[in-house]
Design a protein around this nucleic acid. Structure first.
Length: 411
RNA sequence: GGGGGGAUUCCCGAGUGGCCAAAGGGAGCAGACUGUAAAUCUGUUGCGGAACGCUUCGGUAGUUCGAAUCUACCUCCCCCCA
């Protein structure tokens, strides 16, 4: 059911967080037409079939898609199994591992489990682009290639750079954007979303659609979310990410660790807090009316609520305050099983306890270091001697550093 | 095809025969401070039940009392010329 909300209101929602909409007036027209005819728009999103672990950065685009779904539109996710086998133009130094069809399908399934947390499964369809790209024969490829001029492809920034620097450009790489553009033709998509790095490919889709006599798609570009470090983009490999399937407590804690100045960005891109309110929080922090920590707690709560629940968010906050603000022991701590075999003459060597039994250190040296630096306590009492042999009792709380807690369980 | 330069601990990078488990920085970890963080300061960062010993400097084989450092071969990377 396509939303009856006024087009102005819809546009306002859609524009939130978006860097650029090309062209904006065409989007209005499409929305209007959709509203009049009751035919939902088709949104397209291309994904790599590499091992997926969706984080808040990916969610920025997914959440935008979700907005469209809430307005009654339809989302098609394209798993780029075919294009992945060709190789991305930017993958010059790193050879992309070729995935088997089996792996691709497995990854696609994992995706599905994750994006369901953001998207409306009822209004989401998943397709593989080998479905149509794999069917093209050589003549078909040539005919397709004929629709695009070399000059047009070479406009693309990274190609232009490489050409001028004398670095090679494979012929197949020139075809890559054409493949992606053809996806739009095959699906007759109305809107394609992506990051700014996708600008060329998405706009190419418009050209190709026009060539095929279709109404060109609208391009919506979303910003890249900055990671928890506040400097680099959020990515799994940099370790500065929050996965959307992470436990509430984990999420809350990670979000509390972002630098103050990225809060407005997170509010805008990762929460549903209305923009006027976001501006107000921002102004409040500047004038000192609102404490940055309170704002951050609000932010963390909002985000946890989206992926878990309001209750979980509140519990996560309470736990956070308990552990960090009040410096108390977490309510839920893992047990550290101490088997009888580890006990000698009624005692356990502290290094052994940390490394083998609790897993708080991966080597003896690391365990010793922790002890020598005063990071280890048992029931609040600091242990400073790495050679200490301890008499343990069930229920005692072992702590290593700021975050690692364990409750002793004698067996 | 020809010529030149590289490969060092998590990363970058110093080290050109013993004083090297290897400077310095980044990052991590621990402690202090704090508003969770950031910033700052201090310590720490191969392994081992550890004032001693063991294993590291692309790989292999040598030279030497002694090698990250010298030699030979191999592997990989980068640059220039064609």
């Amino acid at each position: 059911m396509v939303s009856a909300l006024s087009i102005d209101k819809q546009m306002e929602l859609i524009k939130r967080g978006a860097i650029e909409i090309i062209p904006e007036d065409e989007l209005r027209t499409k929305l209007k037409k959709s509203q009049e005819t009751g035919v939902p728009l088709r949104l397209k999103l291309g994904l790599d079939p590499t091992a997926p672990d969706i984080h808040l950065g990916h969610a920025v685009v997914l959440r935008k898609l979700r907005q469209f779904q809430d307005l009654g539109h339809e989302v098609i996710i394209i798993i780029g199994d075919f294009t992945a086998s060709i190789g991305d133009p930017s993958g010059r130094s790193v050879t992309r591992p070729l995935l088997t069809q089996e792996e691709i399908e497995k990854n696609a399934k994992t995706y599905a489990e994750q994006y369901c947390r953001v998207l409306d499964a009822e209004k989401t369809r998943v397709v593989f682009n080998s479905e149509w790209l794999g069917k093209l024969d050589f003549a078909g490829v040539i005919r397709l290639a004929a629709k695009v001029t070399v000059a047009r492809v070479l406009e693309r920034d990274d190609f232009a750079t490489r050409l001028s620097e004398g670095r090679p450009i494979g012929l197949h790489e020139i075809l890559y954007p054409v493949c992606q553009a053809y996806d739009s033709v095959a699906l007759k998509s109305d809107v394609e979303l992506g990051g700014m790095d996708q600008k060329f490919n998405i706009l190419m889709g418009r050209d190709l659609q026009r060539e095929f006599g279709q109404e060109p798609q609208i391009a919506i570009f979303m910003p890249i979310l900055v990671g928890l470090d506040g400097l680099q983009k959020m990515s799994k490999s940099l370790g500065n990410y929050v996965g959307i399937t992470e436990p509430a407590g984990e999420m809350f804690g990670k979000l509390m660790s972002i630098p103050d100045d990225v809060m407005p960005q997170y509010f805008e891109l990762c929460t549903n807090v209305p923009m006027p309110e976001v501006r107000e929080i921002e102004a409040g922090m500047l004038s000192g009316r609102i404490h940055p920590m309170d704002a951050k707690k609000r932010l963390a709560r909002e985000i946890v609520t989206i992926y878990h629940s309001k209750e979980a968010a509140q519990a996560a906050q309470a736990e956070f305050e308990h552990v960090f603000s009040n410096r108390e022991i977490p309510t839920d701590i893992e047990g550290v099983k101490v088997p009888a075999s580890a006990v000698k003459e009624g005692k356990v060597w502290i290094v052994r306890l940390l490394k083998d039994l609790a897993g708080f250190a991966s080597t003896n040296s690391e365990a010793r270091r922790l002890i020598e630096q005063g990071g280890v306590t048992l029931d609040g009492e600091k242990i400073t001697n790495p050679n200490a042999e301890l008499k343990l009792k069930s229920g005692q709380v072992l702590r290593a550093g700021r975050l690692k807690f364990g409750r002793i369980e004698m067996e």
